[in-house]
């Protein structure tokens, strides 16, 4: 949740604005967020950050930044791989426990994913915090 969204919700809780006003403001904020003048997403990177529990000084820290252009290029490359080769890849992934069909993922779907991917935070058994977000 962004600082602006938090402020709007605080104003709503304190009674400074109505529910309709808050809805309108949040809508305006989300429509303008992350888009350029053409309405396209201007986010450039997918970030994955793994942080250990604050008390755990031995824990691993991981910070990965992948350009979205690279993911798009990879998906386009995957889309031209022949189906029998894709089937072998999917079988190998299934053996590893990853039930994912890469032939079903298209570069256009990435924009939808980015649109839906607000700041996701996952706590792993209370030990590590995994954050996945776009910037």
């Amino acid at each position: 949740m962004s600082e602006e969204q938090r402020k709007i919700l605080e104003m709503l809780v304190s009674g400074k604005i109505t529910i309709d006003d808050a809805e309108r403001l949040l809508g305006a904020l989300s429509s303008g967020q992350g888009t350029d003048e053409k309405g396209k997403f201007k986010v450039k990177y997918l970030r994955v950050v793994v942080e250990p529990d604050p008390g755990d000084k031995k824990g691993e820290r991981v910070n990965i930044r992948v350009p979205l252009k690279l993911i798009r290029a990879g998906l386009k490359l995957a889309s031209v791989i022949p189906k029998d080769a894709q089937r072998k890849v999917n079988e190998a992934l299934n053996e590893k426990g990853i039930n994912l069909d890469f032939s079903q993922i298209r570069a256009e779907d990435l924009d939808v994913l980015v649109e839906q991917l607000d700041d996701i935070t996952v706590d792993v058994e209370g030990k590590e915090k995994v954050r996945v977000f776009c910037e």
């Binding site: 450039k44 990177y45 000084k57 031995k58 691993e60 820290r61 991981v62 910070n63 990965i64 930044r65 992948v66 350009p67 252009k69 690279l70 798009r72 290029a73 990879g74 386009k76 490359l77 031209v80």
Partner: peptide, 20 residues
């Protein structure tokens, strides 16, 4: 074309892993 697009898209890739 796909190889060139991947080459051009790699800029900004960053991986950092830190243990104790």
């Amino acid at each position: 074309p796909f190889l060139f697009s991947i080459m051009w898209s790699m800029s900004g890739l960053s991986i950092m892993v830190e243990q104790k």
